[in-house]
């Protein structure tokens, strides 16, 4: 299957299941491990994400979801494993093998839980900054930034500063900013966790449009209904390991693992 995630549990000899030849793998993670102060937070994780696929990572807080996501653009450096992005090895064994970290990060857009917009810049400047620093001519960078702000429905807020915008607006600007350098994959780290229900709806609407446009995305999310609707593959992470993965209808509706069932029961009780 294209755009799938594979854990050690569903393949032989601990190797990721091979994707069909037509599937271009954008992100490949093999045997990835990471620890903080001797505490293992990622343990032998395997994941493959094909082009235009959407993988949702779910699980309890502290389970390793965000760390896994942050390893993809090396905001967290893994201890061990193999990591390739858009066909280029970026981490192998226990060292970074990517020659140009800045270019890698331009290939992997990231949207943070707390937006992390630059407060001293207007929305349009937030979106254009990385383009300008990457050498895109000013007018071209501004035109693309305006287009992206239109895409997320915020052209009318282009000259507003982050503090003048609602949480939902800020997160939509953050999405536009992450798209500015035409990334091969977009990472979302709980993009709606800091938002009220109305703002959450606005952000999910934009993400759904991106999904419809064929954007490759990896989401860490607590929005299980959204994950079920848009994802091609759902990964349940607990204790630093991929406990269960599969199609949304399987993992979120008919989970086979006890821990997944317990998580979903707990989620249902809270919502």
């Amino acid at each position: 299957m294209t755009g799938t995630a594979h854990s050690t549990g569903d393949r032989a000899a601990g190797q990721p299941a091979a994707l069909p030849a037509r599937a271009e793998v954008v992100v490949r993670i093999e045997k990835l491990s990471k620890s903080f102060d001797g505490r293992l937070v990622l343990d032998d994780v395997h994941l493959e994400v094909g082009r235009s696929r959407i993988v949702s990572i779910i699980g309890q807080s502290g389970g390793g979801k965000t760390t896994l996501l942050r390893c993809v653009n090396l905001l967290e450096r893994p201890d061990h494993g193999l990591l390739t992005v858009a066909g280029e090895p970026i981490f192998s064994g226990d060292r970074v093998v990517c020659r140009d970290l800045a270019r890698l990060r331009q290939t992997v857009g990231m949207v943070f839980q707390r937006f992390n917009l630059f407060p001293h810049l207007t929305a349009v400047e937030n979106v254009s900054l990385a383009q300008l620093r990457a050498g895109v001519p000013e007018r071209q960078a501004l035109e693309r930034s305006v287009q992206l702000l239109r895409r997320v429905g915020l052209a009318h807020r282009g000259t507003a500063y982050p503090e003048q915008m609602s949480g939902g607006e800020q997160q939509r600007v953050a999405i536009a900013r992450a798209l500015a350098l035409k990334p091969a994959v977009l990472l979302f780290d709980e993009p709606t966790s800091s938002l009220d229900p109305e703002s959450t709806g606005e952000v999910l609407h934009v993400m759904r449009e991106l999904a419809d446009d064929g954007m490759t995305m990896i989401l860490v999310t607590h929005e299980l209904p959204f994950a079920r609707d848009v994802s091609d593959w759902v990964v349940f992470v607990d204790g630093g390991r991929i406990v269960e993965e599969g199609k949304p209808a399987d993992v979120l509706v008919r989970p086979s693992e006890l821990r997944t069932r317990a998580f979903l029961t707990s989620y249902a009780a809270d919502h």
């Binding site: 653009n73 905001l75 970290l101 800045a102 270019r103 890698l104 990060r105 331009q106 992997v108 857009g109 990231m110 943070f112 992390n116 917009l117 630059f118 900054l129 990385a130 620093r133 990457a134 900013r177 992450a178 500015a180 350098l181």
Partner: peptide, 9 residues
């Protein structure tokens, strides 16, 4: 982090 994630040196 946001700057790093955007590929800024």
């Amino acid at each position: 982090e946001a700057a790093e994630a955007l590929g800024l040196g």
